[in-house]
């Protein structure tokens, strides 16, 4: 069968979501952000909620998320996305509000905001990209950096006595009464991408049901700052990140 006979509209099975813009993402080749943006856009498209969804972008690599997902966006100060999301959701209870944050944004400078938004049980969706490093500023230690991991500010590897321990903030979040769904996912292969997408969809559905805060961590790679190829970074993540940050639902009620 000739390729030309296959590539026809009636045979289309999968392509770019209509909720993604045509702007080329600034992310490095192989960055997990792109995959998460894609599945977030697909969930918004499939639920038909493009006109009802307000996104909050962080400070960090995902600051420009607003260029890529075609919804209304607020660009928050570093760590404050949950505060913006709180007010937005309270003032528009029928909209879907999603805060998209990295590990430095959510688990370091914005710890108070995320803890209290989750504890109040704000009916928002939080997507937490944990790649264990500061991407945009050039690879410094993040709160989630693993022990021994080399970064620009831990050039000889993270040491507990000097730098403290990697923070499992998702486990802390799961302890809070206000959260209804807390899960840890990844997007390095087709199966994990599908699972992560299901988790994000569930988070959005929870938000409509006013069950409380849904929190989806995506264990991710930052191959540039990890100084690996994208494929090698995915493997390194599976071997080193997953044992410390195990995948799966931590809370679902």
């Amino acid at each position: 069968m000739d390729i030309k006979d296959i590539i026809k509209p009636e045979n289309f099975v999968y392509g770019k979501s209509k909720v993604l813009t045509d702007t080329v993402m600034h992310y490095c080749p192989g960055c997990s952000h792109g995959v998460v943006h894609k599945i977030l856009a697909e969930v918004i498209e499939e639920m038909g909620i493009q006109d009802k969804t307000i996104g909050i972008s962080p400070v960090g690599c995902a600051v420009f998320a607003y260029k890529y997902i075609d919804i209304d966006w607020q660009q928050a100060a570093h760590g404050r996305a949950p505060a913006l999301a709180t007010a937005t959701k309270r003032l528009y209870p029928d909209k879907y509000v999603v805060a998209y944050q990295g590990d430095g944004d959510l688990a370091s400078i914005g710890t108070a905001e995320i803890m209290h938004a989750c504890n109040r049980g704000e009916n928002i969706v939080v997507i937490f990209i944990n790649n264990a490093i500061y991407g945009m500023t050039g690879g410094q230690m993040a709160p989630t950096t693993l022990l021994g991991m080399k970064t620009a500010t831990t050039p000889y590897g993270r040491r507990a006595d000097l730098n403290g321990y990697p923070l499992k903030i998702t486990e802390l979040i799961a302890q809070l009464e206000g959260t209804c769904y807390v899960t840890r996912q990844s997007v390095q292969n087709p199966g994990s991408v599908r699972k992560a997408k299901k988790a994000i969809r569930k988070a959005f559905e929870n938000s409509a049901l006013k069950k409380g805060t849904s929190f989806v961590e995506i264990v991710s790679t930052c191959n540039s700052n990890w100084k690996m190829t994208p494929v090698k970074a995915n493997k390194w993540m599976e071997e080193n990140m997953f044992p410390f940050y195990p995948l799966g639902d931590i809370k679902d009620r």
Binding site: I56, A83, A87, T88, E113
Partner: peptide, 25 residues
């Protein structure tokens, strides 16, 4: 809406979110 925030930092950023929505905050 009246909400006691966890800090002044959070309060002003709640204003940021509310103001983005065209609301009087």
């Amino acid at each position: 809406v009246v909400l006691q925030a966890e800090s002044e930092t959070s309060s002003i950023n709640m204003l940021y979110g509310g103001a983005c929505c065209g609301k009087k905050v």
